[in-house]
Amino acid sequence: MIQFNIEKPNDDVRSYLQEKIDNLTKPKGSLSMLEYLAMQAGWVQQSLSPKLKNPHHIVFAGDHGIAAEGVSPSPQEVTYQMIMNFLDGGAGINFLARQHNINLHIVDAGVNHDFDANIPIINKKIRKSTRNYLHEAAMTNEEMLLAIQYGAECTQTCFDNGCNVIGFGEMGITNTSSSALWMTCLTGIPLDKCVGAGCDHTGKTLEYKYKVLKQSLDNYKGDNSPEDIIRYFGGYEMVMTVGAMLKAAELKMLILIDGFIMTNCLLAASKLNPNVLHYAIYGHQGDEAGHKLVLQYLNAKPILNLGFRLGEGTGALCAYPILDSAIRMINEMHSFKEIEVTKYF
């Protein structure tokens, strides 16, 4: 396993940040979430004047062998079709990236399709889809390690381009199933509380989906270590995200966390190195059944609750301007010492 040197930020700066925030021209605590986010950004960056530089967002895409069991009403070809939509600029994540001037990158982690070599996609394909974990491990140990390495490399490239705040999204039919299995195995929360409808807005496949996942769990004969759980039930796009998040934390970047799948990727990353959690900013609480529970497990404080269940990183990018507002607050508001306003509470 690749070792990431992730440090907990030094707490000494927190009192100075709190003093600065409390002395801005407003009642103490009156900007609530903005103050919380400004504190976190300043703590991570070890600065009383934190900044957001050249934001990037990476969508990792991959297919899953469990799709053969019909746990999603969407056919597997939707994965590559949506990638083509991303590249054409017509998906949800595209308009949000354009709106907030965020650099968007699409990564083929393991899509069951041969893409034209000339399209603007980052080729990190490990295999055309994971294996079916109802019957065997989704990936080999070597494949898992390679996925972590590839994810870290993608983050490093963004960092080298001057990025200090990064978001992650995913595309992969049935990846809510893999996320539910990671969640139950890594938290101890019962499987039925972790399984949601995914892209099936009617919920008609939910009971069948639970049965297949329960049988997959019953068939698992591994050692229950985080590494083995990640390998056995994960998707290539999910494991790459784990590596990308760990590398981002090592580089002291702010990490924008999206919905159910990305939160479970953070959960998995935290089982490999718990210090990654200090760098996470939770964009939203989505509408997938288990998302609220895994957020609670992580003691997370999500910024938004818009009923989203799209994925791609859309909730994270919707939250980005609020983070930007927090940075503007701490840098642009006057203090009581600077102007003639009597301090009020």
Rank of each mutant, 00 (worst) to 15 (best):
E7W: 02
N10G: 03
D11K: 05
V13Y: 08
R14T: 12
S15D: 09
S15K: 14
L17F: 10
N23E: 14
L24P: 14
T25H: 12
Y36D: 11
L37C: 13
M39V: 10
A41N: 07
Q46K: 12
Q46M: 09
S47H: 09
S47D: 14
K53E: 14
H57W: 02
V59K: 01
A61C: 13
D63L: 01
H64C: 03
G65C: 02
A67Q: 05
A68Q: 15
E69V: 04
E69H: 07
G70V: 04
V71F: 08
S74H: 13
S74I: 14
Q76C: 04
T79F: 10
Q81R: 10
Q81C: 08
Q81M: 12
M84T: 09
M84Q: 15
F86S: 13
G92W: 05
I93G: 12
L96M: 12
L96H: 05
L96D: 02
A97D: 09
L104K: 00
I106P: 04
V107N: 13
D108G: 06
G110S: 03
H113D: 10
D116V: 00
A117D: 15
I119H: 10
I119Q: 07
K124A: 05
K125G: 09
I126E: 12
I126N: 07
I126K: 06
R127C: 08
Y133C: 14
L134H: 09
A138K: 03
A138E: 06
M139L: 01
N141I: 05
E142S: 15
E143S: 08
A152G: 12
E153K: 10
Q156Y: 07
T157Y: 09
C158W: 00
G162K: 09
G162H: 09
C163N: 08
N164G: 03
V165L: 15
G172H: 03
G172D: 06
I173D: 06
S177I: 02
A180S: 14
A180C: 04
W182E: 02
P190W: 00
P190D: 14
V195C: 12
V195M: 11
A197C: 13
A197W: 02
G198P: 14
T205L: 12
L206Q: 11
E207G: 08
K209F: 03
K209Y: 00
K211N: 15
N219I: 11
Y220D: 15
Y220T: 12
K221R: 08
G222T: 11
G222L: 11
D228Q: 02
G235A: 00
M240H: 02
M240A: 01
V242C: 06
K247G: 11
I255Q: 10
I257Y: 03
G259P: 12
C265T: 06
A269R: 10
N275A: 11
V276C: 06
A280R: 01
Q285E: 13
G286P: 00
D287T: 00
A289W: 03
A289F: 06
G290V: 05
H291F: 01
Y297V: 01
Y297D: 05
L298W: 08
N299S: 12
P302G: 14
I303M: 15
I303W: 15
I303F: 15
L306W: 13
F308A: 02
E312P: 09
G315A: 09
G315M: 13
L317A: 11
A319W: 04
S325W: 03
N331T: 07
E332M: 07
M333D: 11
M333W: 07
F336K: 04
I339E: 07
V341Y: 11
K343P: 04
